[in-house]
Design a protein around this nucleic acid. Structure first.
Lengths: 222, 222
DNA sequence: AACGCGGTGGCAGCAACGTGCCATCGCCCG
DNA sequence: CGGGCGATGGCACGTTGCTGCCACCGCGTT
């Protein structure tokens, strides 16, 4: 039985002081999961995050960021994300909440943040235990693989589907023929097919199968 | 800065000795992610797992198991899973590998297993640090939400898709017409369409759109 | 009233898809 | 060898989906 190398720090300043060198020391891979972008927009943390994104340009270092949809609510956040992507990072959106910021560097070090407590300093836990890091990395990977790419997420334009399109989509998903679907929706066959064609255009699909695939992938059906 | 309560044990026997009471002490929730069911089929570990699944019947305790498709390869494993489900556990299948066994009990304690090393004893890490447990739990939750339920997974018959079907599926997803797809796969048009029809039968889809939808939902494309 | 404009619907023609039928081929078994 | 069997491919025909064309309608503008 061994007491492992785990340390807990309170507040951003102490994190930077104790673990700043870990951020700048990332060599091959930097992955993080977070609810939004607030954390690393804070002045103290920005110091640590800066060198990383710069290094992403230089190759060799892959940066994966897994975020909640909450990171896309306002235009400022979207703009920031575009910069991050332009810097070479891969960004994906997970449909579930990610209340705890998680960072894994080179599959060797990880940093987990506790829940944000208003007023008090936030707690961070820094670990290099291979079992812990490996386990967290595997879970991250599972969440990452299941998440949708940022560009696909934005291109899919889930929110921009109006009620009509959703109705068409449900009819398609129910497996109806165009004729019955049109009757159900109170549309003429011609108009229904127009709707389907429009839908396929927005989904950038050239076949109905492909359209269904996109819908399923983006999870915008049920 | 605090050295947290983390301990590492080697081998199943020591795990049971040191942490067996944690398993039996699960009160509200027991979640685990694993590649397959081998771990808890081992004699020493079965001692620990036994009381848990029995308790699941009695209510109050929810058991969530997240597994890789590897857990479904043979019939024995499937039978075991059916028993687990019958005992009240919820089982889901993640499309990504989960090489590290992960267990979280009541969101307070977690156990991470290192990679299985043939010959030597396996390492387990036991932690109660709230930040670590919370972070891992959030990641688990993200992976869990994205995974497909066991019954849906079996009904969708994802694992029973052979290489041929997958090729057809890729052609469909690429948006090709039947004719070009058939040429790409070196099949006659007739046979290709047979394959598509069979695929749609197994997916219980009455339209290609619906088939694509299922494929996207079950995440069995890429 | 006249006009333009966007949305709708009917029609036609074509492309794509679905499927029943049958000939063929390879293969295993009696 | 001969026969059954499953997989394949060609063919034909029916269904479904896709789209260009035009007519119509409602509405607001000029």
């Amino acid at each position: 039985m061994i007491a492992d190398q785990v340390l807990t720090v309170r507040g951003d300043a102490e994190l930077v002081a104790r673990a700043g060198h870990l951020f700048t020391g990332a060599r091959r891979e930097f992955v993080c999961a977070a609810r939004d972008l607030d954390t690393w927009s804070r002045p103290a943390a920005r110091y640590a995050a800066g060198p990383r994104t710069r290094a992403a340009d230089e190759g060799g270092l892959t940066v994966n960021k897994l975020l909640s949809p909450a990171a896309l609510v306002d235009e400022a956040a979207r703009a920031h994300l575009r910069r991050v992507v332009a810097a070479g990072a891969r960004v994906r959106i997970s449909s579930t909440r990610l209340p705890h910021e998680t960072i894994v560097i080179d599959r060797r070090v990880m940093i987990l943040a506790g829940r944000d407590v208003p007023g008090g300093p936030r707690e961070f836990t820094v670990t290099t235990s291979p079992a812990l890091v490996g386990g967290v990395y595997a879970l991250f990977d599972a969440a990452w693989e299941a998440a949708t790419d940022l560009s696909a997420y934005l291109a899919g334009d889930v929110p921009h589907l109006d009620a009509d399109s959703r109705a068409v989509l449900r009819a398609l998903g129910a497996g109806h023929t165009d004729e019955t679907a049109a009757r159900l929706l109170g549309l003429s066959l011609r108009t229904y097919r127009r709707r389907v064609a429009e839908l396929m255009t927005t989904l950038e699909a050239t076949s109905r199968f492909q359209a269904g695939l996109r819908v399923g992938e983006l999870g915008l059906n049920g």
